[in-house]
């Protein structure tokens, strides 16, 4: 029987990409959930672009501090080894290639590794925040999203038709159906959700997929011990 992944399972799969000692910036939505599945022993430093490296868990009520928030404006805590800095220093970190990995959501990704996630023409535009800087600067960019949108359209395309957030910047896309890498020739199908064939994934993808010789089935079992703080 085939099974698509939940938001938590997508986040768990992406957490497997995080290496020991990485500096990671997580966007809003599914990317935020990734933090729950990074084992503490990996000593990962979470970067929040409003000026915090070493973001800890959300505070207990008696730890709440209005001067300590994350880029989503939520109250947070600082982990041991944390530092605070200005927005200019924060984006020097990001643009200068000092952040190992950023994970963010997207409305569309295309086979030229471009992504669109900040603007739908005709709708109120709220702004790009730090997303354009993050995709332009982080060493590795992973997109977490559903494979198809609410109207059934593929979100993986030959060419994005929404306004772009960045060009030639996405390395890997993890969806509820598949793991897809992007190389100079386009999409490469690396993993499929349990019970799906590569042909079925191709059918819901509006761009050609080359199939990796090492094609795998995505792991959907979240071990209880894998749950971090």
């Amino acid at each position: 029987m085939s099974q698509i992944l939940s938001r938590e399972q997508i986040a768990y799969r992406i957490a497997q990409e995080v290496e020991e000692g990485f500096v990671v910036n997580l966007g809003i939505g599914i990317p935020t959930l990734v933090a729950n599945f990074i084992p503490l022993e990996k000593k990962v430093m979470l970067q929040s672009e409003n000026g915090l490296l070493g973001m800890g868990p959300f505070p207990r009520r008696d730890e709440v501090d209005p001067d300590l928030i994350n880029a989503g404006k939520q109250t947070v805590t600082a982990a041991p080894g944390a530092s605070y800095f200005s927005s200019a220093d924060s984006f020097a970190m990001i643009r200068g290639g000092h952040v190992d990995l950023t994970v963010l959501g997207a409305m569309q990704v295309d086979e030229k590794a471009c992504l669109a996630n900040w603007m739908i023409p005709g709708k109120m535009v709220k702004g790009m925040g730090g997303a354009m800087d993050l995709v332009a600067g982080a060493r590795r960019v992973i997109v977490a999203m559903q494979h198809i949108d609410k109207s059934g359209q593929s979100k993986l395309l030959r060419s994005c038709n929404l306004p772009l957030t960045g060009i030639h910047c996405v390395h890997r896309v993890v969806t509820d159906h598949a793991v897809v890498d992007i190389d100079p020739e386009g999409f490469v199908l690396q993993e499929v959700a349990p019970g799906f064939t590569p042909e079925e994934i191709q059918k819901i993808t509006d761009a050609p997929l080359r199939i990796s010789p090492n094609l795998k089935v995505m792991s959907v079992d979240i071990p209880v011990s894998g749950k971090g703080s």
Partner: peptide, 28 residues
Amino acid sequence: PQGTLAERLRAGGAGIPAFYTPTGAGTL
């Protein structure tokens, strides 16, 4: 873009009239 805004302000205070950034290249 947030990093561009921070850098434009930093540049303004530091006597740098303009700068090149990869952020936003190829976009609106």
